[in-house]
Design a binder for these strands. Structure first.
Lengths: 216, 216, 216, 216
DNA sequence: AATGAATGAGCCTTCATTCAT
DNA sequence: GATGAATGAAGGCTCATTCAT
């Protein structure tokens, strides 16, 4: 059956996401999956291949959301949608699913499994955000500038996943709970991001106008 | 001599920062330090204690910069200073020093060594940023809001350290080089951050005025 | 089909002869035979039984040559025939057949498969040689002496199979090639053997005469 | 102490010589040596290195006998000495020493450890025999022919080590005991060899004379 | 104060084998 | 009759650690 294989991937993904590749032993994965020690090497070859398979599985399950914006939908709206979506992924605390966590690990310390992850998941999401950001700018705005906007937006979202433990230490439990609450956080990240983007637009337009004036 | 102890810490910090705790073996640390295999347990007790010591050493060396702003210095100026400083730490590519890298690891996956790191390094820096951010707001602005600003600023800086490998994969080598160039990056992060903060201030003031008007 | 069974034996014989029993895995045998991993245990029970079957097959294929000497054929002629035949078996370098090699292994380190090999192959050949040797001696020569002759003859032949690698190391490639060339080698082994046998005969006859004289 | 290392080599040599490289487990070697499983990898690196070390040790202990022939000693005498020496090595049944056995294995199936064995042990012995054989021939006898003589002599000796088990099967226990008895065997091998060599000499001289006559 | 030798637990992997179909 | 999946024992090896000096 393909059952064992799947159970193995699930158990592995779970444990890998908690402890990382090195600290995870194949024994505990097998035990968690209710499978034999040799099953891993039968199905996957070795520990690393199992890991890669788990990462693949994680980003297969985690489909890139394709928003259907109504025509004429303002970019502010779209950005809001994306930020909320990202924040949801980052903050879902009761997640029984290890998918995100494993992907996060992979993004922080890329291994062989990373390329695919980037191509199938990160890149599409980045592109979507880039499109949205582009709408804020007048035509012809440099790609680098728009990419930077995306990075600043994404950075804020990621912080809340990567640095949750530090947040708790730094801010104390109570503040932490508030600062990491989904609705609230997403709203403020959105506001900050909009401010940042608009400032960049203004600066860009200003310099452009200046240049135009200089030219004329 | 105390020399061996110090060499051990240096070698350990170096290797820990490259490979992480699990993947580092005490043997290679000793070898790199030119010390005996038993030296670690003689000087530190065990591998974990050595790790903690290395982290401690890292954040001792990495002193929290205390800027001496001239009186009346505008917060924009201060923020610029801080962001440049942070970015410098994050981006120094030719860093022969493992200090930052080890701290970053610790922040992403805190261990026993983390509390001290937070108290001695992160917290002071966070406070400084919080003070600066506070200057942008009218008195009485909620702490949570101001903390959020700091987080959004810091998030952008951290991204450029944590996700360098992904950046390369995602954007291609050429774009990558440009997007991760210090001066340029810091400038744009500053602009974005200023925009974000001012937007938050405006929103806060607006709502405050609204509330005030409602009250009156 | 019986086809799989046969393919399995062929593949097994091949690999066993190259690597020996321990170093051969059933997996690679099955793979080489294009059969399923379970096929071995289906057809033979276990690895050892397969090995024995391969050895059996080897000595079945390798039929004991039965020379048809013309009546009155001198023993020198017969010995020449046998030595050439043996040498041919030992030296055939381009042998695509693993039969001899496997038998050699078995002779050097006998296993369960050995008894049959001895009975069906070695013993008949030994007997034939013994008969030939006997012709050199006057009637009544002790069995032990004649057996010794056979062993000395056979020993020379075997050397060229067992110690080929050492020969190469010891003598250098060029000399090696010459010393292991069939026609040449067989001729010299024959000459040496004839000399040895005749010396033994002479010594035996001499001592016999002496004894006879003493008796009379 | 170097004690463990030596015990390990002894135990390993013993077991390797009995079962061969593959069939020997490091666990049983350690157990036999009263050492820990990790000691092997501490002292030797891995199983193969241990094996090589054991082979080295075997041929270090087994010094090449250097005979002191009185001047004018006839080659027959020398040959007798060598054959007895070789036979002694080959036949010592009560040998608690695994040295010879391990060397024999190495000669039959050379591994990485073989080159040294050949250089330090086989080659010197071969040379000594070659010198002795040369004395039987008139000056100018071709090297190949003389080498062949050595091989035929050595072959006979080796047979009694390699094929003891087969001998037992083939000849029956009683005959076996007699045929493998040292004094007796060596004497007959010597006689056979002398006969072989003299025949070769005669043939060589004869052909030489023939050629000489043809020339004149 | 410092070290080379030794330890034992545990790692990943491979093996011949058997099970269920 | 034949197979893909699964098993468990055991393999070589590495690790952090401790011992005896």
């Amino acid at each position: 059956m393909d059952d064992t294989r799947q159970k193995l991937i699930d158990a592995a993904g779970q444990i890998f996401s908690e402890k990382g590749f090195e600290a995870t032993t194949v024994r505990e994965v097998c035990q968690a999956a209710g499978a034999n020690i040799a099953a891993i090497h039968y199905h996957f070859g070795d520990k690393e291949r199992l890991y890669i398979e788990a990462v693949k599985h994680a980003n297969c399950q985690q489909d890139v959301v394709k928003f259907d914006w109504p025509p004429g939908c303002p970019p502010e709206r779209k950005l809001e949608g994306m930020i909320f979506h990202l924040m949801e992924m980052m903050l879902e605390n009761d997640s029984p699913s290890w998918h995100i966590e494993l992907m996060m690990r992979e993004l922080a310390r890329p291994t062989a499994a990373c390329r695919e992850l980037v191509e199938e998941f990160i890149s599409p999401m980045f592109s979507q955000l880039l499109e949205i950001v582009t709408e804020f700018f007048p035509e012809g705005a440099p790609l680098l500038l728009r990419q930077r906007m995306v990075m600043s937006v994404v950075a804020q979202c990621l912080l809340y996943r990567y640095h949750r433990p530090i947040g708790r230490l730094l801010l104390g439990e109570e503040t932490f709970q508030k600062l990491f609450e989904l609705e609230f956080t997403a709203q403020q990240v959105l506001a900050f991001s909009l401010g940042g983007i608009r400032a960049a637009v203004a600066q860009y337009v200003g310099s452009g106008v200046a240049e135009a004036e200089v030219r004329s």
